[in-house]
């Protein structure tokens, strides 16, 4: 039974607690983004995500035209521990109205 105290959102980490077992979006340093189901986290924002899709964005310079080419690399990982010091932002799942 969720008490009133448990469901109240008073600080940022409370919002993350409400996202447990939900798919979240995580933006990381080094132009990395993750989407996955949140299974565990702590106060450092270390996390364990499940069914993860990672997107890495890199910019390459075309040899001839010197144009910037934005490239994204995707991969899937079943379970991933993410160290919190690389986390820039966490976004809870979109709630449909």
């Amino acid at each position: 039974m969720a008490s009133e105290e448990e469901s109240a959102v008073k600080e940022p980490l409370d919002l993350i607690r409400l996202s447990l077992d939900e798919r979240i979006y995580v933006k990381l340093r080094s132009d990395r983004e993750l989407r996955g189901k949140l299974h565990a986290y702590d106060q450092h924002l270390n996390m364990i995500l499940g069914d993860v899709e990672e997107v890495v964005t890199s910019i390459e310079i075309d040899d001839e035209t010197y144009e910037e080419i934005v490239r994204t690399t995707k991969r899937n990982v079943p379970f991933l521990f993410v160290r919190g010091d690389g986390v820039i932002l966490v976004s809870p799942p979109l709630r449909t109205a």
Binding site: L13, D21, H39
Partner: peptide
């Protein structure tokens, strides 16, 4: 060194989702 770790890929058989949820709520 822990400080240079970005990710650890975990073996699926080493992840008990229910256990992790409980431990996380307790820690929170």
């Amino acid at each position: 060194r822990g400080s240079v770790v970005r990710y650890v890929q975990l073996p699926p058989e080493g992840v008990d989702v229910e256990l992790l949820h409980d431990a996380t709520r307790r820690e929170a």
